[in-house]
Amino acid sequence: MTDLAFHVRQFVPNCADGEELEQRTALLVARDYAADLRGKVWSRTALHHAADAHELAGAMVFADVSADRLKIAVAYCRNLVHAAFLADHLEREGGE
């Protein structure tokens, strides 16, 4: 069991192995990555996207929801992080 899986099991003891556990650990990674990104971006828009990703991942990782909902949340968080990178790049280059 990975360290992240251990954390999931502590808060969601009935978490099924396989896709559900995989999605929950992916949300933990997304949450930590978004938190780190919040300290690195210059753009206010990028900061908001990273904060939204962090908040959503934190809200969903231990929630009582299906693996399908978790998969959607992971995709949403990843897209928000990607949007944060793009916004930061545009605003740095554009001088806005």
Rank of each mutant, 00 (worst) to 15 (best):
C15P: 00
V74E: 07
D36V: 00
A73Q: 02
G95H: 11
L21K: 00
L47S: 08
H49I: 01
N14A: 14
L90R: 11
H89Q: 13
F11T: 12
T45Y: 06
L90D: 12
A5M: 04
G94K: 08
L28P: 03
D36F: 08
E55H: 06
K71H: 10
A75E: 15
Y76A: 05
E96G: 12
D88Q: 13
A30N: 11
L4R: 08
S43K: 05
A16P: 01
G95K: 07
A51D: 03
L4G: 03
E55C: 03
A59H: 09
A53K: 04
F62L: 14
A83C: 12
S43L: 06
H7R: 08
V29R: 07
H48A: 07
A63N: 13
L27H: 06
D3L: 12
A63Y: 08
R78F: 04
V8H: 02
A67L: 02
A26E: 10
K40V: 00
D32C: 06
H48L: 07
C15I: 00
A63W: 09
A87N: 05
N79F: 08
D17E: 09
E20S: 02
E55A: 09
V74N: 08
G95L: 09
A34M: 04
R69E: 15
I72W: 08
L47P: 01
R78D: 15
G94S: 15
A84Q: 04
V65I: 14
W42D: 12
R9D: 01
F85E: 09
S43M: 04
N79L: 15
E91I: 00
L47Y: 12
R31I: 08
K71R: 15
A30M: 09
R92E: 11
A83Q: 14
F6P: 02
R24Y: 06
G39F: 03
W42M: 10
Y33L: 13
D64S: 15
G58K: 09
F11G: 09
D36K: 07
R92M: 13
F11D: 10
L28R: 08
R38H: 05
A75N: 13
A87Q: 07
A84E: 03
R69M: 13
R38D: 02
A35S: 12
A50R: 04
L86F: 13
A5F: 01
L56G: 01
E22N: 05
E91R: 03
I72Y: 14
A84G: 07
Q10K: 14
L27Q: 06
Y33V: 07
R78E: 15
A75Y: 08
L21C: 01
P13Q: 10
L28H: 10
A53R: 02
